[in-house]
Design a binder for these strands. Structure first.
Length: 521
RNA sequence: GCCCCCUUCGUCUAGUGGCCCAGGACGUCGGAUUCUCAGUCCGAAAACAGGGGUUCGACUCCCCUAGGGGGUACCA
């Protein structure tokens, strides 16, 4: 039975690199009909674990990565919160102590530190002298009488080596002599991650530990713990981390300033803040940026786009397949095809996937996506009045592929939702197309009358009308259409002209032209 | 310092000794379409880190160097 896990710590946000690792775990479990488990790494967290966990669970749900055991769903192997598993960890430590695989160490931190520095000075690798190792209760009592406190350390082998087969890396070899007597329980009784994770993985019967590459070097000590406890070993697969844009350094949420210097990253970030501002979100770079999954939900990305992009960040099926449905990715996923080198996060490619998936969304559904942005921006009331539905459909239809992210609707179509007297003019466009000696102004005046007399405001009828008008005048369509666009939308760019006229409708179009004409005069 | 891992176009990648004077995708540049902007279509430039081996033959195997990254905590 395949059982995989992802262990988020409740930090209040879901990191994009973490999701990628989680995705691989999820995919592998689903592919083999196994379970995907969420375990909460809250050992060093204070209160508010639930509050800090909520956005993370929300992110998983939004992306469609469901878990079989863990918070909210429970399971037979719980508890799934590390903070509730201390008795298990204590039992493991006791067992290790009893079997001689660990010992109480009464060294003071600075004493160990001194040894470390001495080794450093002599250019040899540090190995703890075990000077304050208590081998008997009597010795322990003596150290304690000196006012010393104990930590529990692993009594690591000092010769031989460990050979491991990693499902991504292949065979890896470690010399035991290079390993320290790592601490597994602190002086205050709390437990170190490595101990906890080994115990949990065993208790949860995890079959495959799929985690970030940074844990590769930590694996020997974990193997030592597991073997000393008599556990059978899970398979390991160390996947490369997601790197910074244009770099090989691990992507982190703390180096935002640096990433913002990357053009593409900055562009994505700007898109986000632009939309956030329009919908009145109060944001800070701490909680709202492209490293955090929530960012994408807030500005109207599609989960499928993100998941597909992340899938290909370090994994590929072959030399041509780019788009994967959920079931296709589950079918074709394998650990063996995960790349060994870190892959850097490319905002442009993410956007390209988003564009592709957005193009596939049916108009009805796009209208729904877009509606919430218009409501948040205060352009449409909630609940919307009943004429909004058809109008929205027409707008989304007219927007076509211009809509990449749902939040784009605000730039694309806000003029359709403001009063005729209130839409704003792009002054540059106005100057270019509508200063009073521009011949387009007279044409506009004339065409206004034709529009007023029009019986139909269907896009196709309007197109026929303008073409006839243009032909009759002996001019090119460009000589009036740009002026018309500015006159009714205030902007120099937009949807197809005839769709725009049609969506606005006759009364609005006439009112807007009149308003513009009076501004020209 | 020591240990471990990694290294194909700007980026994501295909490539498991001859199919590769290296294929695809994003991006870039050029062109076409057009009422603008998108989109779409066509085309171009663009990479095997370097050096030694092994082999009839190396992007593919081995060694070295360089570069990058991770670990080395009473962090996870």
């Amino acid at each position: 039975m395949v059982r995989t896990r992802f262990a988020p710590s409740p930090t209040g946000y879901l990191h994009i690199g973490g999701v990628r690792t989680a995705l691989f775990n999820w995919l592998f479990a689903r592919k083999h009909g196994g379970q995907f488990i969420l375990r909460i790494d809250d050992t060093d967290q204070q209160r508010n674990v639930q509050a800090a966990l909520e956005p993370i669970l929300h992110g998983f749900k939004w992306l469609g990565l469901d878990w079989d055991e863990g918070p909210e769903v429970g399971g037979d192997y719980g508890p799934y919160y590390q903070s509730q598993r201390s008795d298990r960890y204590q039992a493991a430590v006791d067992q290790l102590l009893a079997s001689g695989h660990a010992y109480r160490d009464y060294a003071k931190p600075d004493e160990v530190q001194a040894e470390r520095e001495a080794a450093d000075k002599e250019k040899r690798s540090f190995v703890y002298s075990r000077t304050w190792m208590a081998e008997s209760d009597a010795q322990a009592a003596e150290f304690e009488s000196q006012g010393r406190q104990a930590v529990v350390r692993l009594k690591m082998p000092r010769e031989g080596c460990l050979e491991l087969h990693d499902l991504v890396r292949g065979n890896v070899r470690f010399e035991w002599a290079n390993e320290q007597d790592h601490v597994i329980q602190r002086a205050d009784g709390s437990f170190i991650y490595h101990l906890a994770t080994v115990v949990d993985d065993h208790d949860f019967q995890i079959s495959h530990v799929i985690r970030a590459e940074e844990h590769l070097s930590n694996t020997p000590r974990q193997v030592f713990i597991a073997q000393s406890l008599g556990y059978s070993l899970p398979e390991f697969a160390h996947v490369p981390f997601v790197a910074e844009p244009g770099s090989k350094t691990k992507l982190s949420k703390r180096k935002l300033d640096k990433y913002l210097k990357n053009r593409d990253f900055a562009k994505l970030n700007d898109l986000g803040t632009h939309i956030a501002n329009q919908i009145g979100m109060t944001i800070s770079a701490e909680t709202f940026n492209p490293v955090i999954v929530d960012f994408y939900e807030q500005i109207g990305f599609l989960p499928d786009a993100i998941v597909n992009y992340l899938l290909l960040l370090g994994w590929s099926l072959d030399d041509k397949t780019e788009y994967f449905s959920r079931s296709a990715m589950i079918d074709s996923f394998s650990l063996e095809r995960i790349n060994k080198a870190p892959a850097s996060f490319d905002p442009q490619k993410l956007l390209a996937f988003q564009q592709h998936y957005m193009q596939e969304v049916p108009v009805k559904q796009k209208a729904k996506l877009v509606l919430s942005f218009l409501q948040q921006a205060g352009l449409v009331s909630s609940p919307p009045s009943c004429d909004v539905g058809p109008k929205l459909t027409a707008i989304v239809q007219a927007a076509g592929d211009r809509l990449t992210v749902a939040g784009d609707i605000l730039d694309l179509a806000s003029e359709f939702f403001v009063a005729d007297q209130d839409f704003a003019y792009d002054e540059k466009a106005f100057q270019k197309r509508l200063v009073d000696d521009n011949p387009a102004v007279a044409l506009l005046r004339e065409f206004r009358e034709e529009l007023a007399a029009a019986e139909s405001f269907d896009a196709s009828d309007l197109e026929r009308m303008l073409k006839a008008f243009v032909e009759q005048k002996g001019i090119k369509i460009g000589q009036i259409i740009h002026a018309l666009r500015v006159a009714i939308t205030g902007k120099s760019v937009g949807f197809g002209m005839f769709e725009t006229l049609s969506i606005l409708g006759k009364p609005s179009v006439l009112a807007r032209i009149d308003r513009t004409l009076s501004k020209v005069a």
